[in-house]
Design a protein around this nucleic acid. Sequence first.
DNA 1: AGAAAATTCTAGTATTGATTAAAATAGGCG
DNA 2: CGCCTATTTTAATCAATACTAGAATTTTCT
Lengths: 233, 233
Amino acid sequence: MTGEDNWHFDRDTRFSLKRDRLLRAAAECFNRKGYSGTSLKDVAQRLGLTDAALYYYVRSKEELVYRCYLRAAQVGAEAMARGREEGDSGLDKALRYLGHHIDAMCGDEGPMAIMSEIPSLSDAHKADILKRSREHSLDFEALLAEGINDGSIAPCDVRMTGNAIMGAINWIPKWYRPDGSAQREQIRTQFIDFFRRGLAPSDPALAADAAPVSDIADPAAGPVAGRSSAARS
Amino acid sequence: MTGEDNWHFDRDTRFSLKRDRLLRAAAECFNRKGYSGTSLKDVAQRLGLTDAALYYYVRSKEELVYRCYLRAAQVGAEAMARGREEGDSGLDKALRYLGHHIDAMCGDEGPMAIMSEIPSLSDAHKADILKRSREHSLDFEALLAEGINDGSIAPCDVRMTGNAIMGAINWIPKWYRPDGSAQREQIRTQFIDFFRRGLAPSDPALAADAAPVSDIADPAAGPVAGRSSAARS
DNA sequence: AGAAAATTCTAGTATTGATTAAAATAGGCG
DNA sequence: CGCCTATTTTAATCAATACTAGAATTTTCT
């Protein structure tokens, strides 16, 4: 891989960095040209390499896909963890998580692969990715449940509401194209606004404390209670 | 194709009906096993046919995919049209459309293909599908704009809010598996509830009366933005 | 029944693209 | 310089599967 400035890193990290570049290139190809539409040659070309060179970084195309998905899953999990520790009420935690996840997907973490080819992974890899996906969903549902308990979220079917929100999030790579602009801000604020209104209880007395639009960065939001469930993982 | 009871239909419609079965089988395969994971043989097997037989119904695999996507687009467009004519306020129209679309996706219209392989379509087919997708998005955004105008929807960036909602909808085939139960009701009511709360203005006074005195927006006549819709074929 | 049309099957072909083996290049270091 | 390792390339191989040609079978119609 050409044109790097990684001299100050040791061997192994240089290797990981390059593989990371590979993963991002692959993710972008997959999202733009579709899975069946991207050959290893395409990905390699984007890096100024030949297809065979990729096998220095991954054992197979299957592993390449797996690592792309793994990366997406890890980024999501990290956003979840951050949201959970930064927020107070269930609603606050959920919205912070969502904000972080959006930031990651649309930011420097590079394009995130949309997981449309899980079924064609190897059994072990498929199991791993599915496990992480399920855990992620459960974690989010736990946040919703926590919010319902502490009164920051209106009662609802957490499974379905979670499906709706996660769908909106997961679909982003489908239409988002990084064009430098302030688009990311727009996505985050608008999505979060919509989610907040959708989740918050209609009774303003209960919802009142939920703080206006851009409280993501502001840790000082009025909590309500802080009951209930936490998630494993 | 075996086991039919279509005696009372004429040739052409029988043909179309069978091809429709094919499309549904294909859509289910694509969604369950991924695109690259489904060979024509897989699809054929599900119908008790041999792979070569499929070529009696479609010219190529590319056309099969195209028709799957076309079908999904048409179903969406029809739901949109129904919602628009049945509803009164912008919010009402939007929610009715969403309900119809969910019903269609989770109902007898069979599984709807998730459009993850648009890029590998032929140029003409790709252009057609993209055009329909864009129109669909614009139509929905027009409904949102109409709702904002008539006061039934809180002011927001219709593009982003539309993206969020359509993402939630489009993601459904990813996790929904028809298991006979009343799950579909649950999806529809929970999704719509969430969307309604997310869209409706927080001030009930404004939301209450749909179309107040003056202003533009006789709901029956002129939508605010975006023309279009209506599908051929 | 028997001809004609519709539908499906058998038996390939051909192409694409992943994968591999081994050679070539580059960089650091004694 | 000359060795060692890391990295990339060239040139095949190999398997999967989309697709085709023509035969076989079923259905429809008179």
